[in-house]
Design a protein around this nucleic acid. Sequence first.
DNA 1: ATCGGGTAAGTTACCAGTGGGTCACCCGAT
DNA 2: ATCGGGTGACCCACTGGTAACTTACCCGAT
Lengths: 210, 210
Amino acid sequence: MAKAGTKGVARAQRERQILDIAGRTFAEHGYAGTSLAAIAADAGISKPLIYNYFGSKEGLFSACLTRAGETIAGVIENTAELGHVGPEQAILSLDRIFTALHGQTWMWRLLHDPTTPTTPEITVKHTHYQHRMHTVGAQGVADMLRKADNHDPLDASALTAAWINVFDALVTWWTDHPTETPHAMTQRAARLFTTVFGPLDLDQLPLNNR
Amino acid sequence: MAKAGTKGVARAQRERQILDIAGRTFAEHGYAGTSLAAIAADAGISKPLIYNYFGSKEGLFSACLTRAGETIAGVIENTAELGHVGPEQAILSLDRIFTALHGQTWMWRLLHDPTTPTTPEITVKHTHYQHRMHTVGAQGVADMLRKADNHDPLDASALTAAWINVFDALVTWWTDHPTETPHAMTQRAARLFTTVFGPLDLDQLPLNNR
DNA sequence: ATCGGGTAAGTTACCAGTGGGTCACCCGAT
DNA sequence: ATCGGGTGACCCACTGGTAACTTACCCGAT
């Protein structure tokens, strides 16, 4: 068996590797359902190394959460700045999300884990990313509600939640069908949106996966 | 401190009480994040009594899952048999769901716990209820896709998932806004569906919460 | 009426395994 | 020779699970 001694892996690289495996595992089994021993075994290292780098189980989870949250919120916010609206903006967002999450769809699920610790640090971070996504979603939804002359803030909140959950559903579906390419997912999303909302004008969108 | 001896509570009643508390706790913290000691304390009884009645933690969870699954799947299936279609059927389903889940929205969340044990019994049960909901959802969706001349089974699968997740979003939103009445929720859902899908004809629907 | 036993409801005390977390120590490259 | 990467062995709190015991109620026989 491998004794002690370095394996020539730099800290930054090792941290990324651990974060990747941990994120995947947390997303699949939930925070409470995941043991650090399992993560260590999966990464081919020992438990104390994880503590060396991340301090605690919660610290490790926090790091995973940051990575996932920044990735997803960043993509959505950047896409929103392009100034498209309605279903077209949604397709564009999904396109970017499918690109960014290719091979790491676990990031999305991490933001929806019901077993996260309830410590202030994690809660704050969680709320922060939830809020950023909600904000962007709310803008797209507000337009629709305004046209219908609906100014109820609770209606807006609920519709935003529903809207985000459609994204959630598509990403989750992708997780269950991992052989689908990002390209295929964008195409599928476009077909489905067309079915529900009527014809879309995609030609002018700067899609990654046309 | 309370000694041993009966407290005059009949078994059936006690079982319902335990199931209620356990379901709520499992839904909130996930299976893995829940300890039987906590449930026992919440119910004001001791741990062995739970084992007397449910055999094991998994058995308790299984019982919770059955109650939640039968309730939800039953409501959806019964509603589907009334023969309405499209958004009208959806509103009717939501109306019935809001009625059935009043004060126990945890039932919905229980079906989405990522930390459920992976034993055959639980997996089978889980898949069973998931399948029943998916089947009903797929029927509503199939109609829409047929009209758009889309016969891709994967598209149908993905759209069904998205569709169910809209329900999920509204129930989850309700969980986060527990002071809303079922009546208010039905009204809200109707407004939102109108905004998205255009005018609906609700007068002919046998709504519980008009 | 009441005594006594069977049974259902309930508890305390305990065990064994697991999982988070720590300590002292060990290699290998520069 | 030293410093960063890395580990085996351990601690302890907690959790699932069990055994043995206790108390209250119901009901038939006296």
